[in-house]
Design a protein around this nucleic acid. Structure first.
Length: 423
RNA sequence: GGCGACGUGGCCGAGUGGUUAGGCAGAGGCCUGCAAAGCCUCGUACAGCGGUUCGAAUCCGCUCGUCGCCUCCA
């Protein structure tokens, strides 16, 4: 099994099963309804965890929720905690609709404050952090390896907002003192405040996966500074941290990255309601996890057509697959988890059991389900069949129209008919 | 300016030196009362320019384009 890693800038071999494999996939900051782009790390991470489990690995999948952050204070002044709680519910509800259910822990930053405080204290003791006026900052200059994940050299990193309290403009906040307009805070050795953005991941990953784990996932836009800073913090306390960094490509819409700040957003909820979970999953399946993917009506239609095609296989008789069919499927997924290729392989199969098993890896086993037409539709079809036998084709076609209006399609067979739901 | 990802036919998307990948969409045909499904046929693409080679989408060099990050961002 191998996977391409941002850190290695190429493919990295996974250990032999059973592992264990710790996976930490960065989730969203919760302040509004998440958009469909936010779903990609969740979906890709869930699929990969599922695949690893199927291949005999012991996997622990962690997907964190950032529920304290500047964004939340801005979005819901005075009621940030309520908003965070509400948006967390939304997020869990939305991703739950994919029906993947592989995540073991959804840790929240606000529930890891003791671990975060301890982590920061450790950094201060080791001289990797310093306190200034109730803020605590990470000392980037002390971290010789800073930049090894993103390739950014410390001296090339543009200066952040001028902040006279920092020793070095590149230093980043581990703990921020409470400000008057911020309605949530925790007590700490440095006074009332709340954690900076990056430290929660270092602390929660350690808590749930230990000082070293296999895979850290998230969007490609998190490489710098978020993941670089996580790595800097964790290696400062002697942790190996993540061995493989699995950064998924961005989802683009109207030519650029889908993001709330740009406003080119389709919420996960809307997409799932409009297209359904199967089409949404197939949409992600058609692109390699590492590549950018464009969201468009055309692509969604194409994904839907693909789903129909796969569903059709189960309406026709099962035919035995060629020898080595499953091995080929395993091979393309074992090699950098190439879902587009896996999809291509699956399209060649006519063996129901095999295809259902493969689809199940991606939460798509439901494509194999056969729905039965309701009795009233079946009655229409029966009447149509009678009309056909009497060669009353005008009546026959009229009834077909009625059946279609009810969402079903009639297919004539030798001496029978079959009803198939219209997509 | 620095760092990074991506660039294959209408749309996706395999392919890591030489035989049509595959899918979706589209066109024609067989089948059908008409359809649907199924089957058959049709596409000669690889950002560009050089180079290496008998031969390159595939190796080397240069260039171009799109997107991302360097500020919150999956």
């Amino acid at each position: 099994m191998r996977l391409s890693s941002t850190l290695a800038r190429g493919l990295v071999e996974l250990p032999e099963p059973p592992g264990p494999i710790g996976m930490y996939v960065c989730g969203p900051t919760v302040y509004a309804r998440a958009h469909i782009g936010n779903a990609r790390p969740y979906v890709v991470g869930s699929w990969y965890a599922r695949w690893l489990r199927l291949r005999g690995y012991e996997v622990t999948l962690v997907h964190n929720i950032t529920d304290v952050n500047d964004k939340i204070y801005e979005a819901a002044p005075g009621v940030s905690a309520e908003r965070a709680r509400e948006a967390t519910e939304w997020y869990l509800e939305d991703v739950g609709r994919f029906g993947l259910d592989e995540v073991d822990h959804f840790p929240k930053a606000t529930e890891a404050i003791p671990e975060i405080v301890r982590f920061i204290s450790d950094l201060i003791e080791r001289d990797f952090a310093y306190e200034v006026e109730d803020d605590v900052y990470f000392r980037v200059a002390k971290q010789a390896e800073y930049g090894r994940l993103s390739g950014q050299k410390p001296d090339q990193v543009e200066e952040q907002e001028p902040n006279a309290r920092k020793e070095d403009p590149r230093d980043f906040a581990l703990w921020k003192a409470n400000k008057p307009d911020e309605d949530t805070w925790w007590e700490s050795p440095w006074g009332r405040g709340r954690p900076g953005w990056h430290i929660e991941c270092s602390a929660m990953a350690e808590k749930l996966l230990g000082p070293a784990f296999e895979i850290h996932g998230g969007g490609l836009d998190l490489v710098f500074p978020h993941h670089e800073n996580e790595l800097a913090q964790s290696s400062a306390v002697g942790h190996e941290f993540a061995r493989i960094w699995m950064h998924n490509g961005m989802l683009r819409f109207t030519g650029e990255k889908m993001s709330k700040s740009v406003g080119n957003v389709e919420t996960m909820k809307d997409v799932l309601e409009k297209w359904g979970r199967e089409t949404a999953l197939l949409f992600f399946l058609t692109a390699h996890w590492h590549s950018p993917i464009d969201f468009s009506n055309e692509r969604m239609e194409s994904a839907r057509a693909r789903g129909d095609g796969l569903r059709e296989v189960f309406r026709n008789p099962s035919q035995p697959a060629l020898d080595g069919a499953w091995e080929r499927f395993e091979q393309v997924l074992d090699d950098d988890f190439s879902t587009p290729e896996a999809l291509a392989v699956m399209h060649e199969w006519r063996d129901h059991d095999l295809l259902r098993s493969a689809l199940d890896v991606f939460g798509l086993a439901s494509l194999a389900d056969q729905r039965r037409a309701p009795v009233d539709v079946d009655e229409l079809a029966r009447r149509r069949q009678a009309a056909r036998s009497a060669r009353d084709f005008a009546e026959s076609d009229r009834l077909r129209g009625e059946i279609e209006a009810a969402g079903w399609e009639v297919r004539d067979e030798a001496d029978a008919y079959r009803l198939v739901p219209k997509a």
